[in-house]
């Protein structure tokens, strides 16, 4: 359904930013996880976004009664954003000396996840602000459509 493309564009961003928040929450929750199914400490995960473009001349290209494609020489291809990948951060784990720990190595060091608290917190704020910006875009689109209903009244 592409009758109101702005909603879909901003909606895709809301989904993407929410996914990012989920991943950050996962990183924070596993800050001290030393055991994982694949062995070793938890690895920090990052989200990679990519621009969502409709293939030119495809049927996915936005068709809307509000912007005739003749006005722009072809339909606008921007369709928002999508989560391209969720990647594991393969940087070295943090080493903490704690011989009492059951997962300590022979040298007495425990491998802790490579999650940096400050980085996760700043990423979280960025994701939150981006989410808010896109909510504002949805509200603006809504008020524009509402205003369009007043034409000829």
């Amino acid at each position: 359904m592409s009758f109101f493309p702005e909603f879909r564009i901003s909606g895709s961003a809301l989904t993407a930013e929410k996914t990012r928040l989920d991943v950050i929450a996962g990183n924070l929750a596993n800050m001290n996880t030393t055991r994982t199914p694949e062995g070793g400490p938890y690895k920090r995960r990052t989200v990679v976004f990519s621009e969502d473009l409709a293939a030119s001349r495809s049927r996915r290209a936005i068709v809307t009664p509000f912007v005739p494609s003749s006005a722009t020489g072809g339909a606008y291809r921007g369709q928002g954003v999508r989560v391209d990948q969720i990647l594991a951060d393969h940087r070295d784990p943090m080493m903490v000396y704690d011989p009492e720990h059951p997962d300590a190595g022979e040298d007495g060091y425990v491998l802790y996840p490579n999650v940096e608290l400050a980085k996760e917190m700043t990423d979280m704020i960025t994701a939150q602000r981006s989410y808010e910006a896109n909510v504002t875009a949805v509200q603006t689109a809504k008020s524009i459509y509402t205003k369009a209903l007043e034409i000829g009244r």
């Binding site: 564009i9 961003a13 976004f49 981006s130 910006a133 689109a141």
Partner: peptide, 19 residues
Amino acid sequence: DAAALRQQVTAHNLANLNT
């Protein structure tokens, strides 16, 4: 038309704030 299109383009820019 231009304003409706601009809304779309701006929404797309905002959606790709972190791309």
